[in-house]
Design a protein around this nucleic acid. Structure first.
Lengths: 302, 302
DNA sequence: GCTTAGTGTTGCCTATTACGCAATGACAAT
DNA sequence: ATTGTCATTGCGTAATAGGCAACACTAAGC
């Protein structure tokens, strides 16, 4: 409201007269005069010394100009920050991931994103699937990566990739040379599994029930990392999706053997809250994950 | 222009909803919605997360709010400074004075003004009368105190006080006991006067011409202070208006003796540029001087 | 499950505000 | 003395904000 008045005041000072300022702004001088008069009434003091041919600022005018300068500087800085936000050069994106998802795939995506958007803070929280779903619903996380397809009505599954479970053993293990392993084989060897809450454990439970076999894990631990390390040390086997131990498989510390019978696959789902509008930075990382998972799905199905 | 939009955005965040903000502001919610939409278009980004019952700011919205806060703080500080200026609690007043005018009268006025307006900076420049007139004409000084009545068309004389010239001698001086001194007496004793440019010297010149006497000063110096001090040390006499040596006369270091014959009086004039609008601080000091000089004139004429 | 109260948004109209043009008065330079 | 340029003011016009009602939607309540 008093914004244009300040602008006209400023331009008048710059141009040296109201008419010149009017020409420069493409506005009638009368309008400028009115705006300035209005501003003067607002402040209760003249801003120009009148009765003079050349305009001359009063001290109040100086103050007003100074204020306008700082206002413009602030506005410009805001515009810059807005553009940074718009171009996703800055901002924050928070996501929730299951521990099993951590690995080269995740790291590469995050790395590349960080390279392209150095100023964007990526806030990734590693927790359980239920906690991830909750935080996505509460808008605490922009999106989440969970190992199943939640049934929640307000959760939207952007993409999901099926990944079969493998038996993980160390190279020297008795099972290491087999091309396929059955549940019956697993019963014969000490095994490490996650606790009952873990999805993988639940999937195994259904398979066990179907086969009327029951795995009795010698070690139960709620850390994928620990499961990998324990299996690699050779004393126990474990069951994980392949992507959860890709580096260990690649460098030979672990051998991944398919199951002999059909076992439910784990489903990695990229989830958001339905109806939520994401800002540019989260949206970009989301699409990065989306396309990355699409490529992954293509190689898996092939 | 985008000012009200920011205000509505802010009030909406404060109130929790557009409708509540509208009630608080006495404005329809639709107007707020429109203003916010306009702001979003300007920034090219949503400021609220839509599709949600409760309003939720985006990061861009946070930035905008932050900007609005700083804007309001700036505006408030400006308003405060404007009021200070309006109440003459702050500001600057610059004046030019002749050296001969420095003394208790001047000091008391300045002191009192400073006491009433502690934040106001008084910028007094001591120079020659011609320089004072020039600076008043150029608006460098708000007003000036000169020892004559300038004929300049753009100079307005607010008030002027006539003050007779006195012969100043030390108490031990041969002339010290006389009640009146003539020019002829002065010729007999060494005298200190100002240079030709000094008004006092010019006044003396006319008197000398009238009496066909010529004073030959043994010391010529362009400093009233030096003239006073030299006379007080006893070796020379000098001629000054009484107010230029009031303290020395009061404590007995100098004796002021009236002239025997009529000599032009000096005229102290308070001058401003004609048509100039003074701001509140200068105006107050000006009126202080004006009334001070009016009182002075009253006591002098009496 | 459906209902209901509350939300933001949009279309249409009115009120307010800024604007342009022309006339006026004031000032400084020629 | 005059001329050109300046700011200002009155009046009609254009742009903008505001109000009202209808709509689409969400999040609870039952």
């Amino acid at each position: 409201m008093s914004d244009i008045a300040l602008r006209y005041l400023y331009e008048t000072v710059q141009a040296g007269s109201m008419r010149a300022a009017g020409d420069r702004l493409g506005i009638a001088a009368s309008s400028i005069s009115r705006q300035v008069a209005q501003l003067e009434q607002e402040y209760g003091m003249p801003l120009f010394e009148r009765g003079r041919r050349t305009i001359q600022l009063t001290q109040a005018g100086e103050l007003a100009i100074e204020h306008y300068r700082s206002l413009m500087a602030n506005r410009e800085s805001l515009a810059m920050r807005m553009e940074e936000l718009r171009e996703a050069r800055t901002g924050t994106v928070s996501l929730g991931v299951g521990e099993g998802f951590l690995g080269p795939f995740f790291n590469q995506l995050i790395d590349r994103f960080h390279l392209e958007h150095p100023q964007v803070q990526v806030l990734s929280t590693v927790t359980s699937s239920t906690a991830i779903v909750r935080s996505v619903l509460a808008d605490e996380a922009h999106f989440g990566l969970v190992l199943y397809t939640p049934a929640e009505p307000n959760i939207r599954v952007r993409i999901s990739v099926n990944e079969p479970l493998r038996v993980m053993v160390a190279p020297g293990h008795p099972l290491a040379d087999k091309t396929r392993v059955s549940l019956a084989d697993l019963v014969e060897h000490p095994i490490c599994l996650g606790p009952e809450e873990f999805l993988i454990r639940q999937l195994m439970r259904t398979a066990e029930a179907r086969q009327r076999l029951f795995l009795e894990p010698v070690i139960v631990i709620n850390s994928i990392q620990a499961m990998r390390d324990l299996a690699a040390s050779g004393s126990v086997t474990t069951v994980l999706p392949e992507f959860s131990a890709r580096p260990e498989i690649a460098d030979g510390r672990l051998v991944a053997i398919p199951f002999d019978e059909t076992i439910e696959t784990v489903t990695v789902s990229l989830i958001t809250r339905i109806g939520r509008q994401l800002e540019s930075a989260p949206r970009r990382l989301l699409t990065a994950f989306e396309s990355g998972m699409a490529r992954w799905a293509a190689t898996t199905s092939r």
